[in-house]
């Protein structure tokens, strides 16, 4: 899920510098971490279509506001009606959920779901991939290979968690060789059961940064479940600092 967030707010990757550097697991993980750093404030419209096996699709829409300078984040749910007006606010280490029907704020934990989606509170923390994961070692060598993913030459990196509080203890990431953009991430449980696959279908450059606009998350454990995320209306204008407050979230939700 960390990677979904990474994808949500991916930042600049400078392709030109890639060739000159030694590519190893640490380098690639740091590239992923670099993608999370936003050079400017970000406002975007995010739409998620959830498809559960045997059920009608569920569409969630929200407005995202993010400012990295003080680690602030605000999500305001705009659809469906059951979720409309609910919101999530993160300031520093604190993250709250605001429920419109009870007009109350509650602290949200790292392992709690966001609006019933696969995203968790912990996905919004600024924890670095390089701190959380390391390469799987095979015969004393990092599990890092070069291969083709469709028609794209990619790095295939297999990583394992260094800590025990990540959603997926093992991951395989396929990253483009030229720009280090993740194209696919396979997420595994501790006993190497494939749980979820993520596909990054479209990137766009905004102010010189690569930004993922479309991605699909496929549930590999319960086949037939998947969610498609689409980001639009990305705006890098500065956000009013007063926006990242409980009062503002409450006002927005009315």
């Amino acid at each position: 899920m960390k990677t979904v967030l990474t994808a949500l707010f991916a930042s600049l990757l400078l392709a030109a510098t890639a060739a000159a550097e030694t590519v190893n697991a640490e380098f690639l993980l740091k590239k992923l971490d670099l993608m999370q750093k936003m050079g400017s404030d970000i406002t975007a419209q995010v739409s998620i279509i959830q498809q559960r096996s045997g059920q009608a699709p569920r569409k969630l829409e929200s407005r995202y506001y993010r400012r990295d300078s003080d680690d602030s984040f605000l999500i305001l749910m705009t659809a469906p009606d059951a979720e409309k007006g609910n919101g999530y606010l993160r300031v520093g280490d604190n993250m709250w959920v605001y429920r419109r029907n009870t007009r109350s704020f509650q602290h949200i934990n790292r392992d709690e779901s966001i609006s019933g989606t696969d995203m968790k509170g912990g996905d919004f923390e600024k924890r670095k991939m390089a701190d959380l994961y390391r390469a799987v070692m095979t015969n004393g060598r990092e599990a890092l290979t070069e291969e083709m993913l469709g028609s794209r030459p990619v790095y295939r990196l297999e990583i394992i968690a260094k800590v025990d509080d990540v959603t997926y203890p093992r991951q395989i990431i396929w990253m483009t060789k030229d720009t280090y953009l993740p194209l696919k991430v396979a997420n595994y449980s501790g006993n190497m059961t494939l749980m979820v696959s993520q596909y990054y279908l479209a990137y766009q450059t905004i102010l010189g940064r690569y930004f993922p606009l479309k991605m699909v998350t496929r549930d590999e454990f319960e086949k037939g479940n998947q969610s498609a995320m689409e980001i639009s209306g990305v705006d890098t204008s500065p956000i009013d600092p007063r926006l990242f407050t409980k009062a503002k979230l409450e006002e927005f939700s009315q």
């Binding site: 392992d111 968790k120 912990g122 025990d164 990540v166 959603t167 006993n191 749980m195 319960e222």
Partner: peptide, 15 residues
């Protein structure tokens, strides 16, 4: 039967 659950530290597990 295949079972998926969340471990105490939040990681998904399947068995």
């Amino acid at each position: 039967i295949n079972v998926r659950f969340t471990k105490i530290r939040g990681a998904y597990e399947a068995r």
